[in-house]
């Protein structure tokens, strides 16, 4: 992934660290405050666990200092199942980062989106989790021509990868190509949305699609209980299905990620 970059940019700009994820993210926090744009890498999703405290504190920094300080950075890490699974190398658990206020979360499904989202993140003003799905890194279906040095994608804008009117399929990362293959195989006219980012996520696009198709299937690679798919299901149920049956609707209050004073 970073092969050759150290040769080109030197050991001050591309370097190995000591084996401490807390150290890797904490270091990035101090560097970001000093005006740099750190791009720390975690070797596997599970190994972000020792950095939890720094990740959480980084995310809340802007809010808890009332916009006096912020530590924008781009944390890259591989996620998800690839070839064989185990509890340490196959986790996705994107939802933990979405649940950490202040983090933007990108889960590209292909090479073009990866370029566009990474570029936006590297030029941005918020901390970003950039999650690279292991199964897509060299997948044929994820290959695209390089979209250019100026190409940058906004966060929170889903991509319609297939148009249809019988059912809405919502996915991201490695599940996008699975949905495409399944729709193809079943011969169903599916409206397939690739969310591309989970924080923020494009609820407008999903709701608009569901209003047309009246059916919604969310496909996520995670534990069934408490995954991000559950959040989408809650919003779709509330705003698309229940809303149409209610005269007046109570506002859904899970939309704003807030930290509480401790």
């Amino acid at each position: 992934m970073t092969l050759g970059l150290q040769d080109k940019y030197g050991e001050n700009r591309v370097f190995d660290t000591s084996l401490s994820e807390e150290g890797i993210i904490g270091r990035a926090v101090g560097m970001a405050i000093a005006g740099l744009m750190p791009v720390p890498e975690i070797q596997f999703r599970k190994y972000a666990d020792p950095a939890c405290e720094q990740i959480n504190d980084c995310g809340t920094m802007r809010w808890r200092t009332a916009n006096r300080f912020a530590a924008p950075m781009v944390v890259r890490m591989p996620v998800g199942f690839f070839r064989c699974g185990d509890p340490w190398h196959s986790q996705t658990n994107e939802v933990q980062f979405v649940h950490s206020p202040g983090w933007r979360v990108a889960c590209p499904s292909n090479a073009e989106d990866a370029v566009g989202l990474l570029r936006t993140a590297l030029r941005g003003n918020d901390p970003v989790m950039f999650l690279e799905h292991r199964n897509m890194l060299d997948a044929t279906s994820a290959r695209r021509p390089y979209p250019g040095d100026d190409f940058a994608l906004p966060f929170g804008v889903a991509k319609r990868v297939r148009e249809g009117d019988a059912i809405t399929l919502v996915a991201w990362g490695a599940m996008v190509e699975r949905c495409e293959a399944a729709a193809e195989k079943a011969g169903v006219s599916a409206d397939i949305l690739d969310l591309r980012t989970l924080a923020p996520w494009d609820s407008e696009a999903v709701l608009a699609s569901v209003k047309r198709t009246h059916r919604c299937l969310i496909v996520h690679e995670d534990i069934g209980t408490g995954g991000f798919g559950g959040e989408i299901a809650a919003i779709v149920a509330d705003r698309a299905f229940l809303a149409s049956r209610r005269a007046s609707r109570a506002p859904h209050d899970a939309g704003h990620p807030l930290s509480a004073p401790s």
């Binding site: 150290q6 591309v14 370097f15 084996l19 890797i24 560097m31 740099l36 791009v39 890498e41 590297l122």
Partner: peptide, 12 residues
Amino acid sequence: VLVFGEDVGPKG
């Protein structure tokens, strides 16, 4: 911009 982590240097 700077890039760092475990084994991101010579090994890539």
